[in-house]
Nucleic acid binder design. Structure first.
Length: 249
DNA sequence: CGATTTTGACCCGCGC
DNA sequence: GCGCGGGTCAAAATCG
């Protein structure tokens, strides 16, 4: 599956390169757009379940160059911004994202371009950890929750640091009952991994824990089959891999 | 009783 | 200068 993904990624990359050669003005058009417009472009371009991690170094860095104002430029340099898409129940009106960290909600607003409210969270370890996140349902797909992370945690993952933390554990477990029999199980499991792809320590831990789990072979095959048939998943994985490659470069 | 959430008020940058 | 809109504050309410 990974081989196929890599091939698809290479094909996509080549197509993009060719397109960029044929349309060199594309960059300028994007970079000359205003900030809010570029946000919209970013959202629409990532109209899939996946990770747009570390915008300042990824393929979307062109639009970040549109940060003309000193304050925005400072923000671009100082705050590491990543956008993560979570697949959730459309009927679930809560804006709780179970990423394992502890957050304290400090505000909620209804924004102009999206009828669903946007929730503002700070890391519970603030002010020592200044990470913030914004959570809002996608305007295109209400079943998709978009979480925008600003900054990086300067402390270990709470679930690793404090394994007896009831609140956190309850949040993580709260996914299980509804997803146990639902077809969305695969999606939820996958989002648990992808949303942590910017945190290498957590990612490694997930991989390690996965290797210890005994998953029935038939289930693995079913999961792999359903995922490879999913166009959105393939595109999201390609985006995640390309982001990782660009990050390494 | 401390931690967290809710929610209206306030602040501030931006466009006109 | 003014109004709009996004982001933050902080008091009250709620939760465990």
């Amino acid at each position: 599956m990974l081989t196929e993904m890599c091939e698809n990624y290479n094909t996509l990359r080549n197509n993009l390169m060719e397109y960029m050669k044929k349309n060199p003005e594309t960059k300028e058009v994007i970079s000359s757009s205003k900030k809010r417009k570029s946000d919209e472009i970013s959202t629409s371009n990532n109209n899939l379940i996946g990770v747009n991690g570390n915008n300042s170094e990824s393929s979307s860095s062109d639009e970040d160059q549109s940060c003309k104002k000193p304050r925005e430029l400072e923000t671009c340099i100082k705050a590491k911004v990543s956008r993560v898409y979570f697949k959730t129940e459309a009927s679930d009106s809560s804006l709780i994202v179970k990423d394992g960290y502890q957050w304290r909600k400090y505000g909620q607003k209804v924004t102009r371009d999206n009828p669903s409210p946007r929730a503002y969270f700070k890391c519970s370890f603030a002010p020592s950890c200044a990470v913030k996140k914004k959570v809002q349902r996608s305007v295109d797909d209400p079943s998709v929750t978009v979480a925008t992370y600003e900054g990086e945690h300067n402390h270990p993952h709470p679930s690793q640091m404090e394994p007896t933390n009831n609140r956190c554990r309850n949040q993580m477990n709260s996914v299980a009952p509804s997803s146990a029999a639902a077809p969305s199980t695969v999606t939820l499991d996958w989002t648990k991994k992808t949303k942590c792809s910017n945190d290498s320590s957590y990612k490694n831990r997930m991989i390690n824990s996965d290797s210890k789990m005994e998953i029935p072979q038939i289930l693995v095959e079913q999961m792999a089959s359903s995922l490879t048939k999913d166009v959105k998943f393939r595109a999201a994985l390609a985006a995640a891999i390309s982001g990782q490659m660009l990050h390494q470069n």
